[in-house]
Amino acid sequence: MDPVIEMREVSKYFGSFKALNNVNLKVSKGEKVVVCGPSGSGKSTLVRCVCRLEKHDEGTLEVLGSKLTKDEKSTLSIKSKVSMVFQQFNLFPHLSVIDNLILGPTKALGLSRKDALDRAYTFLERVKIPEQAEKKPGLLSGGQQQRVAIARALCLEPEIMLFDEPTSALDPEMIAEVLDVILDLAKEGMTMVVVTHEMGFARKAADRVIFMDKGEILEENTPANFFKKPQTERSKLFLNQVLNH
């Protein structure tokens, strides 16, 4: 199957710091990839390059068949087809939940307000909080806010969903409700790249686990093998720390 994300020798610099170092990665349609690794290993930069919040400096990156370059025009070809869920939710605080959801569909996709509302309520029900539609995001719990953020991303009906540590800013008891929503999505066949430290989620949902350190992909493995016999010393150490804390 044709990959929907293909990275070849991709590097990214922040000043003289090399955040991504010759990264090669293919993600096929419908695949769920979990990216893990210690902080500062380039996981976030990897997904941010895919949705063009960062622009890579070297190598080639193709998303949904379009070659992405530093040229802004290349970004347009994947506009609203790649959605992102952030660690800090990044909901728009001045808009109600429902207005957060319809902003993209009405302004970026050109949907009518009515169609956008229909779509928004469908996804609010999917994330199980239709009753919060009229509230401002600030009144919601962290878990609810992140579920709204997921619904907002889904409202664009994207082909790829990226998650950048979606549960890292949540209280422990709220992690499950968010992971459940993401698991449901995974079952429906959405292509997903999830940066997370939730190894339980990786075990349950991932087709592949990618382990990164210092901007490089050190290991690419099935979840079963990754947890049973990690291939590098670095990933062994990492797993020990994450699983036995």
Binding site: K79, M84, F86, N90, L103, G104, K107, A108, A153, L156
Partner: peptide
């Protein structure tokens, strides 16, 4: 916050739309 602009970008808003609907009102 920078995240506001980033979120706007990932839901497909243009620069002008981002300014008009997300940044200016706040």
């Amino acid at each position: 916050a920078k995240g506001q602009r980033e979120a706007a970008q990932t839901i497909g808003l243009s620069y002008t739309q981002t300014m008009r609907y997300v940044i200016f009102p706040q």
